[in-house]
Write a protein that binds this DNA or RNA. Structure first.
Lengths: 141, 141
DNA sequence: AGTTTATTTGGCTTTATACCAAATAAGCTT
DNA sequence: AAGCTTATTTGGTATAAAGCCAAATAAACT
């Protein structure tokens, strides 16, 4: 398995990947477009990039689905979002505020930092916006 | 005084402003250039932008100094950096790791969030990389 | 006054994001 | 099956942030 730093995807690309993971199935360009309020052509290009980078299986005109790598990555993205949201909620931010705040900077927080925070928090199972899965989190030590 | 969200400056511009604050005096283009490992022409343009936006007093060919607005802003930037660094250090990151990690995402964390975190932490006076000043921090409530 | 150094300007590049318009493929519908 | 409609992709263009190089310009120092 490839090492991930958590910094390989830009904010928008990460958002698209999370969107696809949440759907849990093949997703069409139009869904991403309306779901993210972005022009379909913009989505189409981003999906192309993500497929080229190995995160997605893209069948032109049909839709995209997460590759094994993409699914693992998207799961990390969701875990990162939730751990950071939970963290901020411990410092007086409401769930909504925490979620919004995190969405601005999460793309720039490394997996190394998330793993440490996660461990220090005792690998919490529930965040402020959903359950946290630790499949790809380093439990040991 | 103008409201600040903490999101008005890009990461690099913020870094330049902090550099100037740390010097505590008029700074020359060359200093920023060597201090930040960036081409002088790049610095020159950035200083121009920062001066146009009112953060700096720029005397062409002479150097830049912080305006009142710029000083207040730079102080917020330093406080943000230190509060976030301290925060991460509470979750198992070493001072160096925390500093490096924070430098990647700090530009995207709002003043509103920092003020809340600051308050929840009890307005700490010392961070992992220097003293924290709360001049512009909202103490009340 | 002339040379050297610092600074600025102009031009170009890259990355990320996004839009519009046009082309193309799929999918319905008759 | 042909055609219409909708979805998708492609091509072109734009913006913002950041940066480099080379050339022009200003300042500083002999």
């Amino acid at each position: 398995m490839e090492e991930i730093t958590g910094l390989e995807l830009s904010p928008r690309k990460a958002a698209y990947l999370k969107f696809i993971l949440e759907k849990g199935r093949t997703v069409k360009t139009t869904e991403l477009s309306s779901g993210c309020n972005v022009d379909p052509s913009t989505i189409s290009k981003a999906l192309n990039d993500l497929a080229s980078a190995g995160y997605l299986n893209h069948v032109p005109y049909k839709g995209v689905s997460l590759s094994v790598k993409g699914k693992a990555y998207a799961e990390f993205l969701v875990r990162r979002h939730r751990i950071l949201g939970l963290l901020l909620s411990h410092y007086g931010l409401s769930p909504d505020e925490a979620c919004l705040e995190v969405s601005r900077f999460e793309a720039y927080v490394s997996k190394g930092a998330i793993d440490k925070i996660c461990k220090a928090m005792g690998h919490p199972m529930v965040g402020v916006c959903g359950k946290i899965k630790h499949n790809e989190c380093v439990y040991k030590s």
